[in-house]
């Protein structure tokens, strides 16, 4: 079976588990919603301030929610030692990384599709000025976050690692996604989508680097 076929099999398995249990979305959606409502209420009714802070708050919610999703993506592997089955199987270990990243990307995009309209309504954020830039920023940023989370999430299942190190590894590495995502979203929401090209390019470059590095090193992280 090809790397693509193995990747699809791993992603399909993860999405089936998520669809059955709704573990990630069940935790992520209320978390992101509560976070944004709390921010919105604390900032008060000033329309300009809300509009200015909305992109940053939205991406922070996505980042924190994604950490929950990454953790969940590996929980099913650890429950009964299933990750050892993946290790001992003859598949390309890169397929595990890519499959998990694909599944988490889809889960986060579903979450974003639900949260972004709520934020637009609450924070008077314009979605119609540059919709392609907005969609591009979220899709590319989410792929980058999912790749980082899928790469380091496996360490949580390692007997040598501790769960607490996971956010410490993820958060600094996710900073470029956060910055580029916020800037591209801000430009799209203020009718300056045409200026977002460099930020979208940064997201593309980040995705390629993390996906490439992850494909190469994931097998070593999975090994004892």
């Amino acid at each position: 079976m090809t790397l693509l076929g193995q990747t699809v099999a791993v992603a399909g398995k993860d999405l089936r588990i998520e669809a059955r249990g709704r573990y990630a979305l069940g935790a992520v959606l209320p978390f992101a919603g509560t976070l944004l409502v709390a921010f919105g209420l604390s900032l008060g009714p000033g329309r300009t301030l809300l509009q200015q802070t909305a992109p940053g708050l939205l991406w922070l919610a996505v980042l924190f929610a994604s950490i929950l999703a990454f953790r969940q993506a590996y929980q099913a592997e650890g429950e009964d030692g299933a990750i050892e089955g993946l290790l001992l199987s003859p598949i390309d270990k890169a397929a595990v990384f890519l499959g998990k990243a694909a599944a988490v990307t889809l889960e986060l995009l579903v979450m974003e599709a639900a949260v972004v309209p709520i934020v637009a309504a609450m924070f008077a954020l314009s979605l119609g000025d540059a919709p392609l830039v907005l969609v591009g920023a979220f899709v590319l940023g989410t792929i980058g976050l999912a790749a980082v989370g899928s790469l380091f999430g496996v360490l949580v299942e390692s007997p040598r690692a501790r769960e607490a190190v996971f956010p410490l590894l993820i958060l600094p590495l996710a900073t470029p996604v956060l910055v580029a995502g916020v800037k591209a979203t801000e430009l799209a929401a203020t009718g300056r989508g045409g200026q977002a090209g460099s930020w979208l390019s940064l997201l593309v470059a980040f995705d390629l680097v993390v996906l490439g590095v992850g494909t190469l090193v994931f097998g070593h992280l999975l090994e004892d």
Partner: peptide
């Protein structure tokens, strides 16, 4: 074949 069954609980 170990004493951990390596199964996915929700499948």
């Amino acid at each position: 074949l170990g004493h951990r069954t390596r199964l996915y609980e929700d499948l």
